[in-house]
Amino acid sequence: MINFQYSRASDVADAILLLTAHPGAKLIAGGTNLIDLMKENVEVPSRLIDVSRLPLRKIEETPDGGLRIGALVPNSDLAYHPLIEQRYPLLASAILAGASAQLRNMASVGGNLMQRTRCAYFYDTATPCNKRAPGSGCSAIDGLNRNHAILGTSVSCIATNPSDMSVALAALGALVHIAGPSGERTMALTDFHRLPGDTPHVDTNLEVGEIITAIELPPRGFGRNYSYLKIRDRLSYAFALVSVAAALELDGNAIREARVALGGVAHKPWRSLEAETALRGHAATLEHFSRAADLLLQGARAHAHNGFKIELARRAIVRTLTQAASATPQSQAHKKIA
């Protein structure tokens, strides 16, 4: 770990000023990802700008019937908030599928969106990694890649995004509110994270000097037919091999609206509009779920150790859609798969 400067931002504008004034500075919220990476010398910020006390902890209803969630709302507060539990249970479930209670208490919404990949080479400064040291090469492509991506990969990087929360947010069509030197803007969550391409060191479309201020959920909450299913190497406290967020609106057995997002398979939460279109207007049957799975996994590509993820994802998609359609969502407390 290196020595660094520390400042506490007094408000959002101050945070932006500090970020712009100190290239090489990083925001710190809960610190559960950043500090780990600093201990490994993967992140070496010259300065930490502490945003943890900024007044971004509110969960408010928006005029159009959605919700606005401050960037500093702790993950646990969000998951257990009555409005989230009632109206967006998919989000609550995805958050509770992640990390541990202690980490969720510390972790913020903004930090969760910004958490970095768990690729082992990214974490080990003694090995080449394009994401950590651009141009040094990707050790995972010909190395240990059991946990790596099957979709949207590039020859530069095959890392995955580890966030569970983001997968649900992608399915729910959330917006990210951003403030920066040139004002405020919003971005669809599905546009927030990037594919690696030939710039794997850039995880998101957040610009230099910008800060996430809030997440906005549109009114549609899919409160009845939803499920978040996370498949991992132990029954709790492990990152997803594959996760699926499914949300449906049904008319009898006919699908009126469908959302499916995948985690653990790509550099960003993975959605396929084609797959969702293929579900819309059809009966909620295994056949249509399989078809959607095929469309979601179109172009999936395996490396030496992660080929199993393709079939696993296919089965998990079908299962999660089945859980959602029958309104028997996966419990995050009981590990038996519904």
Binding site: R118, A120, Y121, Y123, D124, G143, L144, D233, R234, L235, S236, Y237, A238, K335
Partner: peptide, 15 residues
């Protein structure tokens, strides 16, 4: 490559 207890798995309570 998994020299830490986040990635070197031992059973969690749920297991």
């Amino acid at each position: 490559m998994n020299a830490n207890i986040a990635e070197y798995h031992i059973p969690a309570n749920a297991d």
